[in-house]
Design a protein around this nucleic acid. Structure first.
Lengths: 214, 214, 214, 214
DNA sequence: TATGAATGAGTGTTCATTCAT
DNA sequence: AATGAATGAACACTCATTCAT
């Protein structure tokens, strides 16, 4: 997994690998069962690590969850930056963002459950992480600049708030996916069916386009 | 809620009251801490009931949660029916639905957390409840009929799927409110501030109107 | 086992008995291994009680230790009161007190270890117990009154402080017994040998008599 | 403490220093928390040494405690020898011993807690140390010779046992100091107050003088 | 209808110790 | 001589549930 080079001492390697295995296993368990439902024993087992190592590397369950959350938030932010939406026309950029958000949630369903769990705990851990807090404003600014460019070019209407739009873009993907279990029962259709997913993405693109259209 | 008539013995009264107190306490605890985090002891304590009564009336934690969920779903469905949207013009009816959904979530935040918890458990309990499943189709039909009337009257465009619209109406309110804790930290604003709530409702109304506009 | 009477409800009986068994087992374990060394599991096992009951009746290890300490202090105070030293001549009363203290320590060696453990923890638990604090002043006053009577009668010298004397009476018995293990090794004699114990008591009586002698 | 001479290699220096730092840190921790309560990790940390070094130099927790105890016992014995009581008149020598014992306990409170802890463990470690066992008889003999001289000179009465006297001299200081925490609470006075300490020493001197007085 | 007592399996966490270098 | 990684057994404490009345 790691691109070890010749000069690095082998011990550190092992320790880094163990740390990474724990983090990955923890992410899976916290996502699957929530913060409270996840078991330290199970995480250790899945990481093929000794339970004691979790305390050695992370300090405890709380701190482990914070580390998992931090990694998750930073990962999505990083992926967003790679989109380089600034290089695209406003309409294309916005479509791209909606589609990216949807596909990211689809491919990283743990992110959704982690955020849900964190909100059940009233953002206790996120509050402590300056890394997470700092990562957001640049993102909002970027969305704002797309809107601004669109308004200038006459393709977007004026007065659409970047934060509200952001929330909506997240919401229409997020809600569909986190609530897919109750949704599938209640609406009597398979929310994860290929056609259903495509349909939802199309609907969401349309929703955002119409909201911005001049 | 119980079909109690005048001649029923007074004990019945108490037993119903105990049941109701347990259900209410359970709803609060399950909403506050999730299914796994809620404690039978705490629920009994809050209900000023003996722990054994929970087993007597409901059978166990699992069944108690199902009862809570059932009540919650039926309550929102009932409230929706009271709106009598069929009597309103299509545009007004749709605005009314969006606003109702928003206000219902706002006044019944437990509903959101219960649904989140149920989805964490992959709709295990909802699947078992025919009452919940049966309550939904009429609601979707009603929304469909509003859309149909709007299309006929030329105020709504054709081809908008009732289920997708429903999901979006729920999503744009639900997401904002369940994720208000991380949201407040990340976007550096108080999501529950009066002005912020009003702004969000306005944004959501606009979103749905534009999605439907002919 | 319990002398249950007709009118007492049988359940309370059992619960009282369990509580008492736990307290007794706890006393033994705390005395044998100190606060930190004692194990909740072992206490439960010895009390033939479920571990959960300890938390039910006492709240936790800390509170259990406090309960044990309280009982131990109150028991020795009660035993002292039964001596009715006020009815004896000053010299006999003082002899009686020295001998009682010695024999009490000898028959209740747990008391010594409990007090040692409590001092290792800087009287954390005793500080919280008003029952223990309140039980002491009357005892000191009683000793003071014996001294006063002795001085009046001309058999004791003036100026002997009751608190200092009390401490000494305790010290010369307590030290011999708590440190009997290292003592036996270092002085190469069996501290618990019948003759050795008698010799020590005689020495202690002599010490106090000479200290008070007019 | 180590028999290091000038020609010893400098590494030796560091290794001795590490050993000494560990021993000092261990003494502090064992005294503060007892044998069972002390943590190897904490000791290593306080000694600014690697945990592994403790096993390297001492073999384990048990052996480390034995080493600490050994040093403590030998230190007090050494200090006693420096008094050179043989050069003093019997009465002065005995006063000197009482005062020394008191002041040593006062300045080395760890000694008291270590001995308490060792007795909780039934002298398990002391039994193994021949160094400790051997150090005692000469001390007892010395006290005996003071008594003998006093008897000869007519200032001490006959028949006072050296061992019993030794125990009493230790007891009246030791008990006051180890039980100063519960004592302060129970007798409602600060046992470590300067005046209180002076008063106690005076009382103890008087106790021993009267016990020996012809 | 109602209740306090009781339980066994499991929680996160900590420990002294050993391994590999 | 010195170290960071790793371990298994144990720790205080908690849980949903059942028993006996």
């Amino acid at each position: 997994m790691s691109s070890k080079t010749d000069e690095s001492p082998p011990r550190r390697r092992d320790s880094d690998a163990t740390r990474a295995r724990i983090l990955k296993a923890a992410k899976g368990e916290f996502a699957r069962l929530g913060y409270g439902g996840a078991r330290i024993d199970t995480i250790a087992e899945r990481a093929r690590a000794n339970k004691r190592m979790i305390y050695h590397y992370f300090g405890g369950k709380e701190a482990l969850f914070t580390a998992v959350l931090e990694e998750a938030y930073l990962d999505i932010r990083q992926a967003e930056q790679k989109l380089e939406l600034g290089d695209l026309e406003p309409e294309a950029a916005m479509d791209c963002l909606v589609e990216f958000t949807w596909r990211y949630y689809l491919r990283n369903p743990e992110f959704l459950t982690l955020v849900n769990s964190e909100n059940l705990h009233r953002a206790r851990h996120v509050k402590k992480s300056t890394a997470i807090r700092k990562s957001f404003p640049p993102f909002v600014e970027m969305v704002q600049s797309i809107i601004d460019r669109g308004v200038e070019e006459g393709v977007f209407r004026k007065g659409v708030d970047a934060v509200q739009l952001n929330i909506t873009i997240a919401a229409i993907g997020y809600y569909y996916l986190t609530n897919r279990y109750t949704g599938s029962v209640i609406y009597e259709r398979d929310f994860m069916d290929k056609a259903a997913l495509d349909e939802r993405l199309a609907f969401n693109l349309e929703t955002v386009r119409r909201m911005l259209a001049a």
